[in-house]
Design a protein around this nucleic acid. Structure first.
Lengths: 225, 225
DNA sequence: AAAAAATTCAATCATTTGATTAAATAGTTT
DNA sequence: AAACTATTTAATCAAATGATTGAATTTTTT
């Protein structure tokens, strides 16, 4: 028997299977993952995954929920904090989120993919969020720029998340086209912790100037052609 | 254009199956797609897909190659054009690419996902591109900003693509969190055709000022706060 | 230590799924 | 029309895969 290494506590096996499942699921997605892959990755017998978790799908849902939490909550946490300023939020979002993504590079693609596979399912899981009010960061954003059109705050928020998350989704393609190594890629992402807040601040400044063009405003910015 | 039907010539069936396969594959991905799904979507018998294309994988590779071309080539085409200015490139990239993405909203997630599933495979398919030189847009970028560090041009290019493509990848999540309809989402993306070039220009200007502190700066640029 | 409960595994089942086959049908050529 | 080729289908196969079973082993309780 290929006994890996026991000597852990009694729930060790269950935890190990779950951890192995997390690795395999996040790497290959639900459909491409076979229960046998999980068994092999965990070092335990196939039947164990059905013994501890009732089925492949139950196990997946468990993991998906946790990963979703990690992906969504860490944004919402910061974006909704009433104690921090707008600029602080932007800086925290970029640095904390990139930190988390460097630790879990495959997370965004996994999440986007599985949400796309069955949107309704995880909508429900996420605390249905019958929109009370927009996140605090959007309120602050609108107040700061003086732009009453909510779509514009939305655009800027989308930009922040896009610039932060997308590189991790496109990493394989990006690395291929540029010949970048994984290490180089991570270094580039590290740089963005400081760069992204800078870019976003520029956008906010610019937006603040334009958002108030209907009113009186010192236009010290140049016209574009 | 994009004539999906060639009237009723003899290759009609083959074309229809391929088109159905494209729909199913791009929606569900390779692993989650059953050949029976394709048969059903095309309205033909299961055996036909093996009659016209040798196997599920052959059919997939065929489609994947075309989608890759659509996704990559349309960028490269514009980014490498020696006739257009830097600003023109940015404007063309945003508008043409968003246009294409509105017509194929599922494309980015599909591409990223399948590249991630087997990076080596499609790397090869893409014309191995033993990097002669960086795309023309990057050259222009560096020249304009006077920034000799190639990583910085890379950052800005990443930002451009991120802001353009990511919203389409995150659309299901975004629509869920904001309660946006598909129509509203597309309208928001339409807006970005003009907004993204504006934001990118701001970044370039800013970068030009910072990057040129050590060198003499050629042309016009704007003063900032 | 004996009994009971929890854990683990090899073997097996039932269904799904990619692929093939052999026959039927439609289309073309002679 | 007969002969021939291309297209299409129903039926079936073989492998893969999620799940179960019953026995063996280990751990806990008495």
């Amino acid at each position: 028997m290929a006994g890996p290494e026991k000597s852990e506590s009694k729930e060790s096996t269950e935890a190990k299977i779950k951890e192995a499942a997390r690795r395999v699921f996040t790497e290959k997605g639900y459909a491409a993952t076979r229960t046998r892959d999980i068994a092999e990755a965990s070092g335990y017998n196939l039947a164990l995954i059905n013994y501890y978790f009732r089925s492949k799908e139950k196990l997946f849902d468990l993991i998906m929920l946790e990963e979703l939490q990690l992906f969504i909550h860490s944004i919402a946490q910061i974006a909704d904090n009433r104690e921090t300023s707008l600029i602080e939020k932007v800086e925290l979002l970029a640095s904390h989120y990139i930190e988390m993504l460097i630790a879990n590079p495959g997370l965004p693609l996994f999440i986007m993919n599985e949400i796309n596979r069955d949107p309704g399912k995880f909508v429900a899981k996420l605390g249905v969020d019958k929109r009370k009010s927009p996140p605090h960061i959007v309120i602050q954003w609108q107040a700061y720029t003086g732009d009453t059109n909510p779509a514009n705050a939305m655009h800027l928020f989308i930009n922040l998340i896009s610039m932060t998350v997308f590189p991790f989704i496109a990493a394989p393609l990006l690395r291929n086209r540029t010949g970048m190594s994984t290490t180089q890629f991570f270094a580039l992402m590290e740089e963005r912790k400081k760069l992204i807040p800078m870019w976003v601040k520029q956008m906010i400044e610019e937006s603040a100037q334009q958002g108030s063009t209907t009113a009186n405003k010192p236009s010290r910015k140049k016209e574009r052609k």
